[in-house]
Amino acid sequence: MVIGPLTSPKDADRIVDILVSHNNLHTPATAREPFHLVVRDDSDVVVGGALGWTAHCWCYVDILALVPEARGNGEGTRLLTAVENLARSRDCIGVYLFSYSFQAPGFYERHGFTAFGQIADLPPGHVTVWLSKRLDGDAQ
């Protein structure tokens, strides 16, 4: 066997398929369904959005970002609410994500997320904070 770089995007798809096949032996079969939400200003310019996927009845937010000018006026709350609504529409029981200490862990906590793990010095001098929120009202 040889270990090396991907030679085609299909290589990455194959790796995902291997893991999903294994997981589906142990859990109800599920597929990773990506989502992409975009925030545009009045001039139709993209000023932020959210990217992630749903799988195993949970929604993972990989990226949620807004340009500085779009922060502090409720747009982040509207975007996070849109993610939660999308998760509910896909029958998810919760949403999870991470935020660096210099980003927005407090924002997520103000919106009902609870920290469930941290990694110090990722990136160096900062902390990665993992957060989750159940959408069914149960404990984290």
Rank of each mutant, 00 (worst) to 15 (best):
P124D: 13
D121A: 10
G106F: 02
G49S: 08
K133H: 09
V83Y: 02
D62F: 09
N73G: 14
S101G: 04
L64G: 06
T77W: 02
E33H: 10
L25M: 13
F113Q: 02
L80T: 07
V83S: 06
R90Q: 13
A82C: 09
D42M: 06
T30V: 04
A50V: 07
Q140M: 06
A120E: 12
V16Y: 06
H36A: 11
T7Y: 00
D136H: 06
R110C: 08
C92W: 00
A70R: 02
A87P: 05
T30R: 03
L122H: 14
T54R: 02
F107P: 12
V46E: 13
V38W: 02
D62M: 04
L6I: 07
V39I: 13
S89W: 02
L37D: 03
Q140L: 08
D91P: 00
G125C: 05
V46C: 11
C57G: 00
N23L: 11
T27K: 08
G94W: 00
Q118E: 15
A139K: 09
V95S: 05
N73M: 12
V67Y: 04
V61A: 08
F35V: 04
Q140D: 13
D62V: 03
I63W: 12
Q118I: 11
P28A: 12
V127T: 15
P124F: 06
G106S: 12
S21Y: 07
D91E: 11
L122F: 15
E69F: 05
L37S: 04
F102E: 05
E69M: 03
T7L: 11
F35K: 01
R90M: 09
V129H: 00
P123I: 03
A115G: 07
L131N: 00
C57S: 13
L97S: 05
E69W: 03
V38R: 14
H36V: 06
Y100F: 14
S8W: 01
I93F: 14
R78D: 07
D121I: 06
L66V: 08
L97A: 03
L51I: 14
R88D: 05
P9K: 09
A104N: 06
E84M: 11
H111L: 15
R14D: 10
F102R: 08
P124V: 15
D13E: 15
W58M: 10
P124M: 12
G52M: 01
I63P: 00
T27V: 08
P123E: 05
T7A: 14
F116P: 06
R110K: 14
Y100W: 12
H126I: 00
A104F: 01
K133S: 07
E109I: 07
S101A: 08
I3Y: 09
V39L: 11
D41T: 05
P68L: 07
G48Q: 02
G112Y: 02
H126D: 10
D41N: 15
C59N: 04
H126K: 13
N73T: 10
N73K: 14
Y60M: 12
V67N: 02
C92N: 04
S132H: 11
G4E: 12
L80E: 05
V127G: 01
F98S: 11
